[in-house]
Amino acid sequence: MFGRRARSEEDTVVAVLAAALRRDISFGVLRPDQKLKIEALRQTYGGSNHSMRETLRMLSAEGLVEATAQRGFRVTSATEDDLRDILFMRLEVERLGLRLGLQRSDVQWEGRVLAAHHALRRTEEALLKEANDALALDWDMACRSFAAVLVEAAQSPRLSDMQLKFYDQSRRFRLALLREGRLDFTARAQQQQALVEAVLARNTNAAVAALETYVTGDMMTGTRSV
């Protein structure tokens, strides 16, 4: 009993540490390729050596941290090639999930898509009025929820897990574009609306095409909707 309680407490600590490091990697506080020394991280974020090591292993599985043989951990790189590869994998998963979802979905799923889209639009409107880190996180989570609901009707937990993994790997790039003022929110709103309309019309080809536009945006100009 006590062993289970200790394990549960340790899992909670790791979850809290992972959320903090995930946030700071996403916002660029922990920079791409930065070495992550456990003792230095403990001084900033707390936790034990064991819990911090477990945290870094978790983030390594998510693709945000890289474990190198004999060299410890570092934040994964964030080059343009990295982004292209992440978007390639994300699109492969999300296209498949959306196609399957449109075959297997019901009216309740349509309601969840509409609700997620509504929440996303509200957070984008709030962010345009007052940009701060708290609203940026709310917006990013709304983007994440909208992306996730589009594939959940595929009824494949493993596919959904992969979708979230690649989405999370792309968030550093999206938040960097937000900080630099390089996101076109008018274009994003139009892309989201086109995607939702195609989904509700059960037009698979149009929905997949709209998804591709929304996820990739314009890679060359820096107004990417990632």
Rank of each mutant, 00 (worst) to 15 (best):
Q155G: 05
D138R: 15
S145W: 08
L127V: 01
L135Q: 14
T123A: 13
E180R: 05
Y167N: 04
R121Y: 03
R74W: 03
D106F: 02
Q70N: 15
R121V: 07
C143S: 11
C143R: 15
L135R: 15
W109R: 11
E124S: 08
D138C: 08
L64D: 03
I86C: 03
A148C: 04
D184Q: 01
R144V: 00
R71E: 15
V65N: 04
A131Q: 14
D138A: 13
M162A: 12
G101F: 01
R158G: 06
L178M: 13
V151I: 02
R121T: 09
L178E: 09
A176Q: 12
F88C: 11
D81C: 04
R174D: 09
K165M: 13
E110T: 08
A176F: 07
K165Q: 12
T79V: 06
D140T: 15
R144Y: 03
A134T: 15
T76F: 13
M141S: 08
V93Q: 06
F166E: 07
T68M: 12
Q169L: 02
A131Y: 10
R84Y: 08
G101Y: 00
L64W: 02
T123P: 06
E152P: 08
E125P: 01
G97E: 00
S156G: 05
Q108A: 15
L114K: 15
S145Y: 08
M89V: 10
Q103S: 12
L98A: 04
A69R: 11
T68N: 08
W139G: 09
R90K: 14
L83P: 04
L127G: 05
Q163G: 10
L127K: 06
G111M: 10
L120I: 00
A115S: 12
Q163P: 05
L175F: 03
D161V: 03
G181M: 00
L120Y: 09
E152Y: 02
D184F: 00
T76A: 15
R144I: 00
R90M: 06
S170C: 01
L159Q: 02
E66Q: 14
L177P: 00
M89W: 14
R74G: 01
D140V: 07
R121C: 06
R121L: 07
D138P: 05
S105W: 14
S156P: 05
R144A: 05
S105E: 14
R179N: 13
A69P: 01
T68H: 03
D140C: 10
S105F: 03
L137T: 13
A126R: 11
A134I: 13
G111Y: 09
E152G: 00
L98V: 15
A148R: 13
A69Q: 08
Q70G: 11
L183Y: 04
W139Y: 13
I86Y: 07
Q169P: 02
Q108G: 14
L100R: 06
A154W: 01
H117E: 15
A134L: 14
G72K: 03
D85Y: 12
I86F: 07
R172W: 11
S170H: 03
S105G: 15
A78W: 05
D133M: 10
A116D: 13
A78R: 12
A142K: 00
D85T: 12
A119H: 09
W139C: 09
S105Q: 14
R122E: 15
M162I: 11
L127R: 04
A147M: 06
R179S: 11
